Computed example of a mutant assay.
Amino acid sequence: MQLRLDHESDQRTDHESDTASPLSTVTVDAPARLHLGFLDPSGSLGRAFGSVGLTIDAPGTRITAQYIDHADHAGETQVTGAHADAQRERITHYLGLLHDAYGGPPVRIDVRRAPRAHAGLGSGTQLALGVGTAFVRLLGRTASTAELARLLGRGARSGIGTLGFDHGGLIVDSGSSARSGAHHEPHVPSILTRLPFPDAWRILLVDDTRQEGLHGNEERRALATLAPFPKELAAHLCHLVLMLVLPGIAEHDFDAFAKGISELQQTIGEYFAPAQGGVFSSPTVAAAINAAKAATQHRAGIGQTSWGPTGFAFVQNAQDAERALAAATDVTRGIAGVVCSVAAGSNRGASIHAVGLQRCHSGPA
Score class of each variant (00 low, 15 high):
Leu34Tyr: 01
Asp40Trp: 05
Arg113Pro: 10
Ile56Met: 11
His35Trp: 02
Leu34Gln: 01
Pro105Cys: 13
Asp57Gln: 09
Pro59Asp: 08
Thr64Ile: 03
Val79Met: 11
Gly37Trp: 04
Ala48Pro: 01
Ile91Thr: 07
Gly75Trp: 09
Gln78Asp: 08
Leu97Glu: 15
Gly122Glu: 04
Arg88Asp: 09
Ile68Lys: 06
Gly37Leu: 02
Ser44His: 12
Thr55Trp: 09
Leu39His: 04
Arg90Gln: 08
Ala48Trp: 06
Asp29His: 11
Glu89Gln: 12
Leu127Arg: 04
Leu121Trp: 02
Thr92Gln: 06
Val131Asp: 03
Val131Cys: 08
Gly124Met: 10
Leu54Ser: 04
Arg33Pro: 00
Gly120Asn: 09
Arg47Phe: 12
Asp110Ala: 10
Thr92Ala: 07
Ala58Leu: 07
Asp40Thr: 10
Val52Cys: 10
Gly81Ile: 10
Tyr102Phe: 15
Glu76Val: 07
Ala86Phe: 08
Pro106Val: 09
Arg108Asp: 12
Ile68Glu: 11
Arg62Gln: 13
Arg47Met: 09
Gly124Val: 10
Arg108Phe: 11
Gly53Gln: 09
Gly120Thr: 04
His70Tyr: 13
Phe38Cys: 01
Thr92Cys: 01
Ile91Ser: 00
Arg88Cys: 05
Gly120Cys: 06
Ile109Arg: 02
Gln78Met: 14
Arg113Glu: 15
Pro59Arg: 00
Leu45His: 10
Leu129Asn: 06
His73Ala: 13
Pro59Gln: 04
Tyr102Glu: 01
Ala84Asn: 12
Ser123Ala: 15
Ile68Asn: 05
Leu39Lys: 05
Asp57Val: 05
Arg108Ile: 12
Gly46Gln: 02
His73Pro: 09
Val131Tyr: 03
Ile56Phe: 14
His73Cys: 14
Phe38Met: 13
Leu34Phe: 03
Ala32Asn: 01
Ile109Ser: 07
Leu95Met: 07
His35Ile: 10
Ala86Leu: 10
Ala74Ser: 15
